[in-house]
Amino acid sequence: MAERDALSLIEAERRRDIRSRWLLSTPALLIILFAALGPLFIVLVYSFLTPGDYGDVKWTFSTEGWVSVFLQRDIFDDTLTIADAHLTIFWRSIKLSLMTTVVTLIVGFPTAYFIATRSERTRELWLFLITIPFWTNLLIRTLAMLVVIRNEGLINTMLIRFGLIDQPLQMLFTDGAILAGMVYVYLPLMVLPLYASMEKLDFRLIEAGYDLYATPFRVLTRIIIPLVKPGMIAGSILVFIPSLGAYVTPSILGGGKNLMIGNLIELQFGAGRNWPLGSALSIALMLIVMVALLAYVRNAGSSGVKHG
């Protein structure tokens, strides 16, 4: 029957389609499998094992790693108390990441607006300037920051030279130093998605707002912000996630005592020789990010713009 032939042809075509789609995505799937899901699985398994004497793990099941994420066992009588140190570090990480996100948003918003309102040719130049910090290694950029803010650094020397202060200000090894460093490092990640959505903004809408008696502030809150919200969300996510797991910046600018989650994890795999705890902390960090993202996206989605 001709009809059945046609149907089987369509079916064959469909199968070939599916097969070629799988074939084409094989490299990506392999990378995700071996480079992302695989290690993640190993980390998850390690978090339920016992620490080895010189690092590594012993293959004995234990929940001790997970218990010590939030609780600590007294060395003498085995009573469990809240792990204040860990909670402080988690809280500092979340607080500093949120502050980094807010500050980059406040600084990045006018920057992106400025670039988006330049002529098309100069826009490219400004964007190019924004990406220049990416040319230099993160470590070197952070060390440069250290040179500027340390006690004998540029800022303190200048302030003392001009007689504004007698003693150098302690800026290095504070939360403020970490915040400044992270804002500096992650600012481009905020500016670029903000610019991308502002560039698409129809500036005649702003004129329409002015025309309809909206003051500049009202134009900002009622027209510009609702329309560039997708860029604000994307930028916030791009800044918040790496901030939460930041390692280099807090370890150089925060010194030994202002740890963030990233440093705590590194400590467990290095000097602490407690891989299960390190693994459990890593998974916990991931869960925090996921929860924060879900909460943020849901919240932003409900009050945000639905473009037809």
Binding site: A208, L212, L227
Partner: peptide, 20 residues
Amino acid sequence: MPPYKRPINTVFQNYALFPH
């Protein structure tokens, strides 16, 4: 005088309706 103080309104060429 800034536009938001003028008792004048405009119909724009592309309408410029607020999409949100």
